Simulated assay, not measured.
Amino acid sequence: MRHPRSGPGKKRGRGPRIPATTFRKQLAALANVDQITGAKIPKSFVFSRGKLPSTLRHLQQDLRKVMLPYTALNLKEKKRNNLKDFVNVAGPLGVTHFLILSNPKSLPHLRFAKSPQGPTFTFQIEEYALAADIANSQRRPRCPPGIFKNSPLVVLSGFSGLGNPFESLVEYFQHMVPAVDPSTVQLASCQRILLLKYDKEKEVIDFRHYSIKLQPIGVSRRIRKLMQSNQVPDLRDLKDVSDYVTKAGYGSESEADDEAAMVSLPSDVDKLNQASRKSAVRLQEIGPRMTMRLVKVEAGLCSGDVLYPWPVGKQGKVTEKEIEGQEESEDGSEDEMEE
């Protein structure tokens, strides 16, 4: 019995043939939808407007890594590209969020925008540290490439009871990455945390990026390394294999002794962290790190009614002209970006 064939190519059997263009559109639509939850996957562009110094260029690349895997890591911009070009390219690619860096005369600014109709939240970056700076300050930096295969878990703190425009901002942050269903999520895919904490006294938002590491309780460091490396250790100076485990300084319990950091896993994560034993949760900052102040909210995409201006009379007031400073004219061509 012959079955109809779907997809491009020569027709076989008695079934209808799907045109190649329609087949490609169906594949593109499936790529934009979570196969488990059925929800649309949010995707992002991280780019700049105007000239940026080298440190902000590195910050832009760090932000792209934060938004992985649903962002264009190697997005290349041209001087003649304007905002409309990014919007035109975003539609077919399923891009829903923009992170736009600019460097006006006062302080660097970062805009979080929803494509294609807004809103847009403009932040003034008061302090920042690159991922390389964070790694250089640590004795044992940990940032394996595999942790960027899945989106980070967004954790929001201090935003309750603030009202608008922070309610809209919280909604934006929540939908910036794919939603997580606790009943179906695989624990092995939860390897990063993006923490956004609002300081009500200073009226700033702390932006922190961490990696998640699980360590089994009651397993010595040498056993952990042996299980993770899958290599035969050097036993030349030992009389017995048991000496490798019981050697002084390496036969103790796991370093994590804080009861608050210990959890019971509902399912197996790897060979060491299994549901039958407790594991310690460790967070290690991988950067970048930013301290941001909300200065403007616009109803549209970098345009429209201003919903939240900076309070009049406070020091550090930023005018709209400064926010848009050093940005190139929006009257350029509509060439597509190279990825």
Results as ranks from 00 to 15, higher is better:
S6V: 09
P8E: 14
P8V: 10
K11F: 09
P16T: 07
I18K: 04
Q26G: 05
T37S: 06
P42L: 08
F45L: 02
G50A: 06
R57P: 01
R57H: 02
R57V: 02
L59R: 06
R64E: 09
M67L: 14
L68R: 06
L73H: 05
R80K: 02
F86R: 03
N88E: 14
R111I: 09
R111T: 08
P116S: 12
T122S: 08
T122G: 00
E127D: 09
L130G: 03
L130V: 00
A131E: 01
S137A: 10
R142L: 14
P144Q: 10
G146V: 11
G146F: 15
I147M: 03
I147L: 02
P152N: 04
S157K: 10
E167V: 08
S168V: 08
S183V: 05
A188M: 11
V204I: 14
Y210N: 07
Q215R: 12
P216V: 08
G218H: 11
R222P: 00
I223H: 06
V232I: 08
R236H: 11
D243K: 13
Y244T: 12
A248D: 15
E253P: 02
M262V: 11
S264R: 15
L265T: 05
P266H: 13
D270K: 08
L272H: 04
S276N: 04
R289E: 09
M290C: 03
E298V: 06
S303Q: 12
K317N: 05
K321S: 08
E324I: 06
G325I: 01
S333M: 04
